[in-house]
Design a protein around this nucleic acid. Structure first.
Length: 433
RNA sequence: GUGAGUGUAGCUCAGCUGGCAGAGCAUCGGAUUGUGAUUCCGAGGGUCGUGGGUUCAAGUCCCAUCACUCACCCCA
């Protein structure tokens, strides 16, 4: 029988798992530093909770679950695997009106999309989300940008940029050229600028019936990117753009105060972002080196929670893609050696001396040092050294007849090749330091 | 959902106009019975993705099928 994984899924063997846990631990530390608290929600939701939140294209990618029993045989569906972590959060907020606001949570869980797999794209992947709910202040948005910045920095990234825009600003641009009625299709075309270039966007806009004149006006609006972009748009758009421009300025200033390196923050008037529910500032992080699409995206979505609860609850948040982070970090060599958590391998010299090795490994473990004991039938001591080397375990302890007589152990440090005989207590001190 | 490409040893791949299935790395054994990584010698390992067809003969040509990869769409 030939065995296959389901399309778009992977097993995470220990070496990969250590990388993933390293990323998660690093991000959690940053999230908690900013005062976000953990949340988990079920893998699947009622179908009504998810439908109508992601646009037509997104909705087709939802994994649906057939009803149990007769209904399922007729193809009826009542539940679905979660598509992201934001909509479940909105449901949680609606169901728990007593939560103290602002509610700041992080959530690191898998989501599922029935996409066609590709490099850095899977059908099951883990998102690391951070959101602040119940706060209209741009400080909350600034915190999201800052937590994203600090998270990437803590992981060791250097060449990354966070592009920033504002949905209302983009809308003002589109309305300025008289295309307000076809906002979404225009935004989708503009968003592809980096990918297909200006000519490609022009072709797409023309294909959607946008006049040359309107296109020319659009490019005039979008001609400045970076520091001067907001001044440029303010001059051209006037009053309709005042609010979003001021909000962005407020957010950028606060982010700078929070320590975000300004070179890494780029105002990009063409940034749109796909998901339908964003209403305010939006942002997206991408790395310059391996081309893999965005590794994080987020923004303000003040309307989403209200869909579930009648009351309007503002919210802003972001999502980091764990799987893409791992792919990129691997390529950039940002991982330390994570082959084994064990620091020591205690060898077994012979059947007769095995009890001494067992006692030694126990003592080392009691001292809090992760340690392995050779469990197999006793082989040549050289083989045991080799297995330590291959597993990436730096220290090896040998207890042979000579050591026994002297009351010492032999401790070898494989990376340096140095070895000495000393008491077990001294050996433990040495490994610890 | 649309288009293209690739399936040969555990991994990366070579295999010409059809003619006995190959290399490097990895693994295992030995050189070295108290020492890995380096060096030397040796060994094992294959239904050539699967099914059918053409042929004296198919890894190679044809058809189908499955899996994977890449691009588009969309997105983490």
């Amino acid at each position: 029988m030939s065995v296959h994984l389901a399309k778009g899924t992977r097993d995470h063997l220990p070496e990969k798992m250590n990388q993933r846990l390293h990323v998660i631990a690093t991000l959690r530390e940053v999230f908690e530093r900013y005062g976000f608290e953990p949340l988990e929600t079920p893998a699947f939701e009622r179908i009504e909770t998810l439908m109508g939140k992601y646009g037509d294209e997104g909705e087709q990618l939802i994994f649906k679950i057939l009803k149990r029993g007769e209904g399922g045989k007729r193809g009826e569906v009542d539940q679905a695997l979660r598509y992201d972590l934001t909509v479940p959060l909105a449901r949680v907020i609606a169901m728990n009106p007593a939560l103290r606001m602002p509610f700041k949570r992080y959530q690191i869980q898998p989501v599922w999309r029935a996409d066609r797999p590709q490099r850095g794209r899977y059908r099951e992947f883990v998102q690391c989300d951070v959101d602040t709910v119940g706060c209209t202040s741009m400080l909350a948005d600034a915190e999201c940008v800052a937590v994203l910045h600090d998270g990437l920095q803590a992981l060791g990234f250097e060449g990354f940029t966070i592009r920033v825009n504002h949905r209302a600003l983009l809308r003002a641009c589109v309305e300025h050229v008289g295309l307000g009625d076809m906002e979404s299709s225009v935004l989708i075309a503009i968003d592809k600028l980096d990918k297909i270039g200006r000519d490609g966007v022009n072709a797409e806009l023309k294909g959607r019936g946008v006049s040359d004149e309107s296109i020319a006006t659009l490019w005039e609006l979008f001609s400045v990117r970076g520091p001067g972009a907001l001044d440029h748009l303010e001059a051209l758009l006037g009053a309709p753009a005042t609010t979003p421009i001021n909000e962005l300025r407020e957010m950028l200033d606060a982010a700078a105060e929070m320590g975000v390196v300004l070179d890494r923050l780029v105002v990009d008037p063409t940034l749109a972002r796909g998901l339908g529910y964003y209403t305010g500032p939006v942002f997206e992080a991408e790395v310059t080196e391996p081309k893999i699409g965005s590794i994080s995206g987020g923004g303000r979505y003040d309307g989403l929670v209200g869909i579930f609860s009648n009351r309007q609850v503002p919210a802003v948040g972001l999502s980091l893609g764990l799987d893409r982070l791992v792919v990129v970090m691997e390529e950039l060599g940002l991982f330390p050696d994570l082959r084994s958590a064990s620091k020591v391998l205690v060898t077994v010299y012979s059947e007769e001396l095995r009890p001494h090795s067992i006692r030694a490994v126990s003592t080392i473990r009691e001292a809090g040092i992760p340690a392995q004991l050779v469990l197999d039938r006793v082989g040549k001591i050289g083989k045991q050294f080799k297995s330590a080397d291959q597993a990436g375990i730096p220290w090896v302890v040998v207890i042979g007849p000579d050591d026994l007589q002297a009351g010492t152990v032999s401790l070898k440090h494989l990376p340096s090749g140095s070895q000495e005989n000393l008491s077990l207590a001294r050996a433990i001190d040495k490994i610890r330091s």
